[in-house]
Nucleic acid binder design. Structure first.
Length: 152
DNA sequence: ATTCTGACA
DNA sequence: TGTCAGGA
């Protein structure tokens, strides 16, 4: 009775500070080229953190959300600068937040005895699924799993 | 394999 | 913005 139920570890997976993605991952998720991400950052429109070891960019959930917002505005017809101003004025658009969460969360399943969050297809060809696996030490590990192997 | 910076037939 | 080079 004292042992926690597996789903009690679920909230840990929603620790947004642990939702960190590399530039290539962000690029695929929000359909913004890595070239654009670097340029936007250079112009001061967005921000990223550097993984101390490889000096490569990493983006947390909030940075990702901001990028998604800017991208959405551009899709709506705004210029890059216009999109940035709009996002700065209104902050994160709830519709974007919800649509992002809705499109990103695809349920939970057990993988190798650990609860894992299905974050949806990672590639445009729908061959790989991104999972956020909650390990026994409460750490979250992201892993790409081939669609065919995801139903074992 | 992935990312980084600089540069432009 | 895309893309390629030349390194890490």
């Amino acid at each position: 009775m004292s042992s926690k139920q597996w789903y009690e570890t679920f909230p840990k997976a929603l620790d947004l500070n642990k939702l960190i993605f590399k530039i290539g991952e962000v690029s695929k998720m929000v359909s913004v080229s890595s070239r654009q991400l670097r340029y936007w950052e250079q112009k001061g429109y967005i921000k990223s953190n550097r993984s101390n070891n490889h000096n490569s960019r990493v983006y947390n959930f909030y940075n990702l959300l901001r990028i998604a917002n800017i991208k959405n505005r551009i899709n709506q017809g705004y210029t890059l600068i216009g999109a940035v101003h709009k996002v700065n004025e209104h902050g994160n658009n709830l519709n974007t937040v919800f649509s992002f969460m809705r499109e990103s969360f695809h349920g939970i399943k057990m993988i190798h005895g650990n609860p894992a969050i299905n974050l949806g297809y990672f590639d445009h060809h729908h061959k790989q699924i991104l999972y956020g696996i909650i390990k026994s030490n409460q750490e979250v590990e992201y892993q790409l799993i081939n669609k065919s192997d995801a139903f074992n």
